[in-house]
Deep mutational scan, measured.
Amino acid sequence: MPGGGPEMDDYMETLKDEEDALWENVECNRHMLSRYINPAKLTPYLRQCKVIDEQDEDEVLNAPMLPSKINRAGRLLDILHTKGQRGYVVFLESLEFYYPELYKLVTGKEPTRRFSTIVVEEGHEGLTHFLMNEVIKLQQQMKAKDLQRCELLARLRQLEDEKKQMTLTRVELLTFQERYYKMKEERDSYNDELVKVKDDNYNLAMRYAQLSEEKNMAVMRSRDLQLEIDQLKHRLNKMEEECKLERNQSLKLKNDIENRPKKEQVLELERENEMLKTKNQELQSIIQAGKRSLPDSDKAILDILEHDRKEALEDRQELVNRIYNLQEEARQAEELRDKYLEEKEDLELKCSTLGKDCEMYKHRMNTVMLQLEEVERERDQAFHSRDEAQTQYSQCLIEKDKYRKQIRELEEKNDEMRIEMVRREACIVNLESKLRRLSKDSNNLDQSLPRNLPVTIISQDFGDASPRTNGQEADDSSTSEESPEDSKYFLPYHPPQRRMNLKGIQLQRAKS
């Protein structure tokens, strides 16, 4: 015994090295194993092979420090690593049964499904019991997946119906949107047309105001020219009257000059006056001389005659003075006559000038009245044309509004008919989907599995289990394997941990 101590140590070291070499393959693929292994699927088989106990299973599945599946799978690998070579062998058998691809990844061999460990530990009855539990578990999982698949199909059909409904609603909204954009385009076109009409109206108003201003300026210029013409006519008439007055005065002077006595007659009258003065002096001298030589009687007679002569001279002087006064009065009367005649001529000139001015103003008033009548006639014609244009424009607008209203009513009726057609199509689609759903539900009910399987069917299934373990590994792997896509769409199922009653199965096998 003492001599065998070193050999035992060498043997233990060799086993430990082999164990480390075995687990080295697992550690190399630890990331892939932790990512894809579900500990809840492996722990029943590991407990059946007595590699882990209930406490280890509870620690792996329910520990609060292991929230994710990767953490739980890593903890399970750590626990199996502590179990040595047996933990490695049982772990590979569980991978061979549940995850053939991972088994091939770790060992590089094809899975054979021999279950040597569980046969050694529990015997064939334990293997049968384990396989029966796994089959029931798989059936329950398949039923749950079928239910989930039916629910998802129903949800899918519902979503398809909602999608069709949303599509129809979208078509309806597109119809309304198209109608909205069309009405918006019509409104924009009408606004552009309105702005264009306003611009045209403004341009016409500006043109009309400009023409009116030009016409008023032309009328004012015409009036100024007419006033200048009238003033020139007035000056012409005044000059004609002055010329006529000057002509009359010149004719009067000419007549006075023609009626003036001649120079010879004046000289002859002056000679006669001198001769008479000479004779008068001679007679006076004779009379003076006679007075001195005459007697007293003759002197008395001469005195009487002288007195008579003096009286006659006085009378004559009075007559001469009277004649002079009369001549002066006649001259003054002639001057007054000439003055009055001049005033008369001036008044006649003024009267004729005023008459011509009156005629001029009368003509001017007639011209202004004619212009006013023409302006009123043009204004009435413009008003009439404007009223006709406004009436025609309003009539066109009324007809346009009428046609637009008819078009809008027809478009609304068309839209309502399209919407009604879309709604009826939606109703038809809904009815078809309901009919299809009812038909599929009836087919699913016919094809669904019963909840409680008979014992004979279970025994028959387990009677055929042994050949399947040898020759149909691919079928078992397809039913027991969970793909990543299934984990996305289906909830994980945790079967209840219970042991099955095998009395009925044993009785059935005894009868057979």
Rank of each mutant, 00 (worst) to 15 (best):
G5T: 09
P6Q: 14
P6G: 12
E7A: 12
D9L: 12
D9S: 13
D10N: 08
D10S: 11
E13V: 09
E13H: 12
T14M: 09
T14S: 11
T14I: 00
L15Q: 09
L15N: 09
K16T: 08
E18P: 05
E18F: 13
E18Y: 05
E24Y: 13
V26F: 00
E27L: 04
C28F: 00
M32N: 08
M32Y: 07
L33D: 00
L33N: 01
L33G: 00
S34P: 03
R35V: 06
R35Y: 06
I37H: 04
N38E: 01
N38L: 01
P39K: 01
P39W: 02
L42R: 02
T43Y: 00
T43W: 04
T43C: 03
P44L: 04
P44H: 06
P44Q: 10
Y45D: 06
Y45V: 09
Y45L: 11
L46A: 06
L46I: 08
R47M: 08
R47V: 07
Q48T: 10
Q48A: 09
Q48R: 08
I52H: 06
I52D: 08
D53I: 09
D53V: 06
Q55N: 11
Q55G: 09
Q55P: 11
D56A: 08
D56I: 13
N62Q: 06
A63C: 08
A63F: 05
A63Y: 08
M65P: 03
P67N: 09
P67D: 03
P67C: 12
S68V: 05
K69E: 02
K69V: 05
R72P: 02
R72V: 02
G74R: 03
R75C: 04
R75T: 00
R75F: 00
L76I: 02
L76D: 01
L77Y: 02
L77N: 10
L77W: 03
D78P: 02
H81K: 06
T82C: 07
T82G: 10
K83P: 02
K83Q: 08
G84S: 04
G84H: 03
G87K: 06
V89G: 13
V90F: 15
V90N: 10
F91Q: 00
F91R: 00
E93D: 15
E93W: 07
L95F: 13
F97L: 00
Y98H: 11
L102P: 07
K104R: 00
T107I: 03
E110T: 07
T112D: 15
T112P: 10
S116V: 00
S116M: 02
I118N: 13
I118H: 14
E122G: 11
G123S: 15
E125G: 13
T128E: 12
H129N: 02
L131V: 09
L131S: 08
L131D: 08
M132I: 07
N133F: 15
E134W: 15
E134G: 15
V135I: 13
I136C: 02
K137T: 14
Q140Y: 15
M142A: 12
M142V: 08
K143M: 11
A144V: 09
